[in-house]
Design a protein around this nucleic acid. Sequence first.
DNA 1: TCTTGACTTAAAGTTAACTTTAAGTTTTAG
DNA 2: CTAAAACTTAAAGTTAACTTTAAGTCAAGA
Lengths: 148, 148
Amino acid sequence: MIYTVGEMAKKIGVAPSTLRYYDKEGLLPFVERSSGGIRVFKEADYEWLKVIECLKKTGMPFKDIKTFIEMAMQGDETIDERLELIRKQRDEVGRQIAELKETMNTLNFKCWYYETAKSAGTTAVPRGMNLEELPEEFREIRKKLRGE
Amino acid sequence: MIYTVGEMAKKIGVAPSTLRYYDKEGLLPFVERSSGGIRVFKEADYEWLKVIECLKKTGMPFKDIKTFIEMAMQGDETIDERLELIRKQRDEVGRQIAELKETMNTLNFKCWYYETAKSAGTTAVPRGMNLEELPEEFREIRKKLRGE
DNA sequence: TCTTGACTTAAAGTTAACTTTAAGTTTTAG
DNA sequence: CTAAAACTTAAAGTTAACTTTAAGTCAAGA
């Protein structure tokens, strides 16, 4: 099965212009052309696009994704470098998850804060509470928010 | 304790120009001015900045953060809306964490892929494996990557 | 063959969140 | 009182990742 840029764009859920842009930026060296100059995407290219999508989700900039793709085009000599790059990105995602969990904790605190304010009719109640009055899991979070 | 824009910027770890920009965009209506027109940040403002930082980490656009801050400036009448907004954002962060975990799974698969390729000396080995030959936890991931 | 829709490129436009610059004012240390 | 550092605003510049536009070409169906 082969696809035009529009068909592949639909298949992976982006605009055709996005794929053309990726191509222009050198992210799609594996895409071939018909005699008339039309891009011809193969089944295997879908997998490349999924990998690019994955790396993009980690926040990796184009420049680095391009480097990765170029290494892959070199063949088996670059296996070590590619493994290294993927490991680094995996660590990076680990950090991102940890940070989002911190953010989640802060939002949970704010939920509790406004739920308490709602019951009391005023934010003065949760705001004025002593540390010992708040649920144990929120004490450290409030200290951080207040810079204590 | 009070702070100038430069001092507060240092305290929260951003450039002074960033705080001025936030102020211009209406994110800091709580910041007061000296008789000479200089911004005067109070201790309580630090907490506001931390909340803004938290919302920014969730990917919330300025426009929405501004709405939240404006509601807070209205006082206790807006407690319900603020609770609602924070809850929605908490759900959003839940989705983001789930997505990052998916991304992490894909990267773990790619790590296994390149480790296997490294041992074999060629990516042809992990690429050519049948589903039953790969570790159970990677089978679904490879199917997704290949669009199966 | 002709029409129509999808393709092509190059270049300009968009958006968000800053950052820098320029020209001028306020505050602080000596 | 003065020099220097840090402040002020407005406006222009930056960056990444697209998106749109314009002008033209290719491919499939009637």
